[in-house]
Design a protein around this nucleic acid. Sequence first.
RNA 1: GGGCGGAUAGCUCAGCGGUAGAGCGUCGCCCUUACAAGGCGAGGGUCACAGGUUCAAUCCCUGUUCCGCCCA
Length: 1132
Amino acid sequence: MSDTTELPKAYDPKEVEARWYAHWMERNYFRAEATSDKPPFCIVLPPPNVTGSLHLGHALTATIQDILIRWKRMSGFNALWVPGTDHAGIATQMVVERELKEKEKKSRHDLGREKFLERVWEWKNKYGNRIREQHKVLGASLDWSRERFTMDPGVSSAVREVFVRLHEEGLIYRAQKLINWCPSCHTALSDLEVEHEEKQGSLWHIQYPVKGSDRKLTVATTRPETMLGDTAVAIHPDDERYQGLAGQFVVLPLTGREIPIIADAELVDPAFGTGVVKVTPAHDFNDYQTGLRHHLPMLNVLDEAARINKEGGAYAGMERFAARKKILEDLTAQGLLEKEEPHKLSVGGCQRCATVVEPRLSPQWFVKIEPLAKPAIEAVEQGRTKIIPETWTNTYFHWMRNIHDWTISRQLWWGHQIPAWYCADCSPRLEATGGIDYSRAEPIVSRAAPEKCPKCDSSRLEQDPDVLDTWFSSGLWPFSTLGWPEQAPELKTFYPNSVMETGHDILFFWVARMMMFGLHFMKDVPFRTVYLHAMVRDEKGEKMSKTKGNVIDPLDIVLGAPAEQLNKNLRNKFPQGMPAHGADALRFTLASLTQQGRDIKLSLDRVAGYKAFANKLWNASRFALMNLGDFTLDNRPITERELTLADRWILSRLQRAIAVTRTSLDAYAFGEAASTLYQFLWSEFCDWYIELSKGSLYGEDPKARDTTRAVLVYCLDRILRLLHPFMPFITEEIWQKLPMARPTDSIMLASYPEPEASLEDAAAEAEMGPVIAAIEGLRNIRGESNLPPSARITAYVQSADERTRELLERWRGYLMPLAGLGELRITAPGSKPAQSAAFVGPQMEVFVPLAGLIDVDAERERLTKEISRSEQEVGGIQRKLDNPNFVAKAPPDVVEKDRARVEELTARISKLRDSLKRLEPDTSTPAATETAAPEPTASKADAEGEVVKAEAGAVEAEAVETEAGAVEAKSFEDEDDEEFEEIGEEFDEDDGDGHAIGDTEAGEAQASARAERKGVIARGVVKTQAESEASPVRASAEKKASTKKAPAPKPESAAKKAAPAQKAAAKKAAPVKKAAAKKAPAKKAAPAKKAAVKKAAAKKAPAKKAPAKKAVARKAPAKKAAAKKAPAKAQR
RNA sequence: GGGCGGAUAGCUCAGCGGUAGAGCGUCGCCCUUACAAGGCGAGGGUCACAGGUUCAAUCCCUGUUCCGCCCA
């Protein structure tokens, strides 16, 4: 073991993260073998487009998948995660074209196909490499030995095989059909690549003269320019307004062409517009269908750039929107434009360039989808593939059931060229250009370039210039990456994949197509589960886009970046540049924000928060390592050691954290898993266990120390392994430093923790309840009075429940340092110290003599608030109980619970009122005066200077003093029941009523009711308390009985009178020395501090009045107050 | 036009029949030797609106308003 005692104080992710990835790569840990005894688990990475670098969506993808893969790998699976990239045909071609134009002022046509493709390959290599490096920075444990690209030879041969087979089966065909066409990209698009947007447009009413009549038919259209291609007008057959017109003709304005009037019930909605529809089969999908039904001519009036072609006569050469304008002018001039009215319409734009898409008649390749979709629907219906979140299942079905044939050919250069050839000799040719007329030519489909034309034996064959839709090749990804069409062993092992994890935005584009292809070619679903994650947006919920300038590069978050590299928003936020947050922090953030069915709004404050979490883990580990000495954890079961309550408690809580984390991961509830680990590490392990461990670590008992060390290492080992899938780097770094036998060389190969029943310890959790409650109550009193941590206070705990007293007595070593006590006295209920702060806890009442330490006003305010809260709550419940229907109809246990709660609250209120009463300045009784504190303000000043600092572990041994006049300073050696009883007696005289705490039963109800509202920690307590009544506690009680030291109390009234003197002496002696040594260098002089305190108190009074009143007026904040005390809340 | 989701603390979100929770932010006290990227304490909510079911509704049902997304 190297030197483990010195870790840097702050965690530096940059240094650590850079080291480990290389190490893992070197050891080949990411590699999965095709043959293995382990069960397979396989994810293929959705291949990022090589258009550019990774964005935060990719980072989310990588994070979730790496969590799954690392978790499964640690759980004993043969876990394969296949990396790869996508050639992204149209998108990549566009970015390269843009670059070419910007840098060299050239178009792709200037270069020619071959040279241009060389450029695209250069681009692909550059960005493919960058993407690979980015994944490494993120810590993704991808098996790089299996990396693929969609245009690799292997994948390409899979593409050809699929194309040829589908063609042979008649599922791929070539046809001249109306397709979506981007006039800017000059290519066909599939339905999915068209993005519809609601836009404000117009509905123009245009008059078409009926031939041989004075009548004019008014058509309503949103696209007047297409009238040049009209080949009919349609009316509804039942429309009485137009009876008898069907079969006649109208004269198309501007062109003078005569076109028929047809009756069509499907196309025409008589209620819309004028009830007369112009029919343009070559430029509208509905009209196209109508044209087919009525055998209308399909007149194309636009060219590939959406300019009017020669069919448009006078308008030829005009761009479509210019033509629209001109046509409307001309119609107006002729008096044929009846009116224009505003109209909302949905306009389709090109996914890539946003140009308005034009329906266009052209020869393309199509996949006949229905035979493929049917099995894909059934597979999900039968649950062979499960979609998570389930809500997407319906969306999937809806789309799959309404799917049209898929246009797969693209008029691009970058992509898989279609494996079809045409004979240059016997194919029909276009008149205009002399080129092959692809709409009529017969393709020869073949896996490899054919040598001869089967018709004319010519060897002059030309390959179809078009390429395939990118999604055609990525649709094969789950098996093409595993070697298909070869019968690779990988296929056997890893197909079907276990999980397909991707964004919900590509459910149709990609997931649906993989389902269809997988089922068709592999005869089985491509994956068992589809997990669809949300979209990552900026912190305002806006989509990240370059045009908005709100894109955040994940690598900037991880590695940090100079200000000039950041977008504007970030530059404002980080004028000095973005600090490095580390991959672990980014991953944990993304995992935490992953909530099913919601977009992720990424805020850098969150990332910073989780960076702090990493730092917390670092420092908790640092604490442990600093206190381990030469300790090494051996392999014997931890239960064989003599565990303390704190040990048993944290080990038990750990089991719960393990169980919840595992359950959450199983359910893909990454946010819940992350939150569980966050809470456990911070709110339980750090806030409680580490604090509690200090006693034995700094104490004199070597055996106890070793036990604590063992538990620290044991817990850290589990925490690190649990966290490893989320935060791979820091966990490896720390894990390697833990002094213990490591069964594996790396944490990533270690086993994922499993809950151990033997460590679940309900009794320990129950026993911690009162301890935690007491500490929290005391901290509350301290906090409300703004007492500095250095101020020791004295606490009197009164409990009617003997067991509670025993427990508190036994764990005073926990209580005192954590509550900042100088002295702790635990007794049965008796009289209460006058002038004391008080709180009512489960089965106990705690008093803190004010003694000038506590701010009386603040305490009064605090009690008032507590009382009013309790009253509010009791009022609400009482109203319920007064309703006979409630008592009669509600389940008895609910009624009973409420009754118990009322009882408990009533008791609580009366105790609190009593405490409050005893604080009223004007009601102080003579007796109280006798034992009263000196003038509060004066003694407060004293206190500032002379507060005793108790050493953590050494409290017992040290003489502690307080200012309290009511309580004499005394050392713990001679402390105990005798003197205390005596004081109690004296108080009895003051205030005889005794206020006995309720009987045990009531007390218990009270305890559990309270505990129930206590969040994380107490939740365990509640359930277990009742169950645990029996053996374990009794056992410990017995143990305690045997070790109990003090005999029965004996009265000794004289001691009390002598005490003040003692106190005075003590005050002068030790504390002052300490104060001098410790406080002298401190900057704050006593008066200054005092002033500050006073000011604070003064300030508080008026400022707080309003809110306090408001709180009273408000509904029922009582419950909240109680719940808030849960340590979970305490954490920052 | 159809479908899906959402509206809960200043912000981001859990919860989903027994009168509310977290993180961040805010306020107060503290540089207590694991951590100031920290500790302790506090404040902050008619759970969008209107009806209904129920002994009981933030939660179930219906409707309304607003905000996303998908499909046509």
